[in-house]
Amino acid sequence: MTTRPDSAEPAPAPDGSSAPKVVAEGVPSALRSDPRWDDGRRPLAWIHITAPGRGVTPSVRSWCVCGRDLFAAGQRRALALIADHEQHRAACPYIAPQERRKAA
């Protein structure tokens, strides 16, 4: 399939299908952060809490840049993981030095 540069037809994918190619290899993405707003902060630890309502089991997931990836379901286990996540943020070698620098 040959396409003209000014046509709106999708380019053929390497495997022969006609799926559109979204980003060319080696081309920087247009979704770069604006340097005027980039203050250097990056997320290091995340916690996702799902508590949908009455009669539904709450769940919690805790991630960290150090490799931590924990999940808990049920009210007691979810509350325990929330408390553990807070303790981990204070003890993690990837997070603790940066927070100490901010406090100084």
Rank of each mutant, 00 (worst) to 15 (best):
A11N: 03
G67V: 02
K102W: 03
A51L: 11
P93E: 03
G55W: 06
S59F: 03
A103Y: 00
P28L: 08
A104I: 00
A83T: 11
T3S: 11
S33N: 01
A78N: 00
S62H: 13
G55Y: 05
P52M: 05
G74P: 03
V56S: 04
L79F: 09
L79S: 13
K21V: 15
V65K: 14
A104P: 01
A11H: 06
S59Q: 04
A91G: 05
V56A: 08
P12I: 03
G74D: 12
D34R: 01
K102T: 02
G16I: 08
A13Q: 06
V23Q: 13
R100G: 04
K21R: 14
R42L: 13
C92T: 01
C66R: 07
P20C: 11
S29Y: 03
H85K: 07
L81S: 01
S17Q: 02
K102F: 08
P12V: 04
G40R: 10
A13E: 05
P14E: 03
D34N: 10
E99I: 09
P28N: 05
G55E: 04
P10Y: 00
S29K: 07
S33G: 11
A103V: 01
A83D: 08
G53C: 09
R42F: 13
W63S: 10
R41G: 06
S62P: 01
L44M: 14
Q75V: 02
R89K: 14
R68L: 08
I95T: 11
R77D: 07
A19M: 05
R76W: 03
A45K: 04
V56Q: 14
G53H: 04
A83S: 07
T57M: 00
T2Y: 12
H85S: 14
P10L: 04
Q87V: 08
K21C: 09
A30V: 03
R32A: 08
I95L: 13
R42K: 15
W63T: 15
V27G: 05
T50N: 11
M1V: 11
G53M: 09
Q98G: 15
A72D: 03
S7P: 00
A80T: 09
T2M: 13
